[in-house]
Write a protein that binds this DNA or RNA. Sequence first.
DNA 1: AACTCCGATGAAAACGTTTACATTCCGCCG
DNA 2: CGGCGGAATGTAAACGTTTTCATCGGAGTT
Lengths: 343, 343
Amino acid sequence: MAVTIRDVAREARVSVASVSRALNGSPAVTDETRQRIASIAARLRYVPHSAARSLITKRTQTVGALLPDLYGEFFSELIRGIDLAARSKGLHLLVSSSHGDTNEAAAALRAMQGRVDGMLILSPHVDAAFLRANLPEAVPAVLLNSALKGAQHDVLNIDNYGGAYAMTRHLLDAGHASVAFIGGPEDNFDAQQRERGYREAMAAFAPKAAVKVATGDFGEESGYRAGRAFAKSADRPRAVFAANDMMAVGCLRAFAESGLRVPDDVALAGFDDIPIARYVTPSLTTVHVRIADLGRSALERLATAIEKPGRALHGAAPMLACEVVVRASSGGKTSGRTTAKRA
Amino acid sequence: MAVTIRDVAREARVSVASVSRALNGSPAVTDETRQRIASIAARLRYVPHSAARSLITKRTQTVGALLPDLYGEFFSELIRGIDLAARSKGLHLLVSSSHGDTNEAAAALRAMQGRVDGMLILSPHVDAAFLRANLPEAVPAVLLNSALKGAQHDVLNIDNYGGAYAMTRHLLDAGHASVAFIGGPEDNFDAQQRERGYREAMAAFAPKAAVKVATGDFGEESGYRAGRAFAKSADRPRAVFAANDMMAVGCLRAFAESGLRVPDDVALAGFDDIPIARYVTPSLTTVHVRIADLGRSALERLATAIEKPGRALHGAAPMLACEVVVRASSGGKTSGRTTAKRA
DNA sequence: AACTCCGATGAAAACGTTTACATTCCGCCG
DNA sequence: CGGCGGAATGTAAACGTTTTCATCGGAGTT
């Protein structure tokens, strides 16, 4: 830190302007002097003072990520994707996670003011009003997995609908005549989309079958309760599709306790492909989401939004495809991975 | 961003100095003017330009976290602990993760130059030479889980030794006469400590029993191989302690294939308490590490190192205690959690 | 040979703060 | 009533860059 651009200039017997130009690759400097300056800078271990630089350029080369209190695998995969993409774009990553409520998120968002060139926001707490109040319109933002519609902000979603649609279809294709669903929290965007996917696939491929939906909250316990209810019910479904893996795991436990064999008596599927899915018995058929890809493309969109500020948003909010991962719990014949297609 | 301290000053009919003082809580300003300035600043949505501020104060209010390519649960818990502590200290968090090798880590470390007031470093790739070459001695750093000894840097470790010691003792206490061990990668610091804990506990509590160690690499597959070998061996151990949970899971699979019942025929334990541990059958007895606590206290140490630069390092590297979590796989009578004590 | 033009370099302003130092104002003491 | 001290406020320098504009040579043109 002690060594500044002046030190380099003095040593190289040029002005600070030349040093700046040489180091920033301006064409208006001889190759010869550029060489000399570069080698001297290296020898002196000169590192440009980033604060001074951002003061004048109004760029921080940093993007912020605002995340809610997030579950293990999802969080780390997302950050990995973001981080990798950020590095390749020469951007730094400022994270602020574990926001329990709207106020915390707002505080975090404001605290990042001026420290970042753009924001990646994934949070159930944000809505249009929140953004208007806390996000200066000058700073570009990409919203992840948000229900927000207005063309005000750039949005990137997981194709929950398509994944659920494809999974429902898979279960029907495997020969299970009736497929029931365990839903997630009512106010959860992902959960809504998944349920819609289930309902529409049922309507499309098994119009005569009953649509049966149990309520859950994404917790294992709620899956367990739903599983017990299904096990006892008079017209027990031939397959159960839980809106996430944790509920599927709970459901599996309920079936085991009720003496039902999976998948022989009843098939089962989840959503998310958490690591546990592979290790339960029988292994769980589920929908895999390439979370790291979500992070990567979110960052890439943000980067272009930063580079070309005026640009209109690129049409409709794009969807990140999901894959059906067929394991033991769904029975039937096929096995392996297939990418979910939109209907 | 458009509104600067001058705007506030003009509006309040005072000098920029007074605004600065008022907003930074200097005592040399009347309560009345402070009020007025504060309200005007709020009305104008004035946010101090952090780059300008750090330029003059030489503080960024940011700490960097350098992490290797890290597995899900551990990563997210660690970041959560760090993030929470950072927020309560008013510090921002710049992360750079997913470093595969030394060069990447070095590049990342250098890129953070001047953007952070201190660094949290968790990486198998760092050693004394690495730090000397890439970390200016002016920036405080806390090393996590590092074998580094020199009092040069502040170090914070997980008590792998104590955890392994306690687990070995637990298995012996549960009545298993012989306990075998599946080790991790030879060059892995955690793995070494765990093996040492196992060996010393055996020496202390079962001096007559044979010490049996299989080699593994922390991967599930290597646990499976070790499990098969143990299952076939003439003097099959009564209990197996794997140096991490993934290997324990692999081992469990091997036992199941060999027709061995766990824990009746052979007890099993792991280390880490990954989420899967709860869901395998039987549920896995393991050692739980409070990773978020590790992150939190690392950040707190770093924060004090930043505040009081001259301070000597606080004596020996402290250890973060582990807990033995007793589940079904270890058999015996006791059940629940006990905090591991050092020998 | 004088002029023009262009490419390389330098001088200095600007970015938005904080803070050392100067100034002002007021009450108080002698 | 004059001077003094101290509290409140103002002025301006400093932080380390980037960038505009000016300057300086030298080559090419007439």
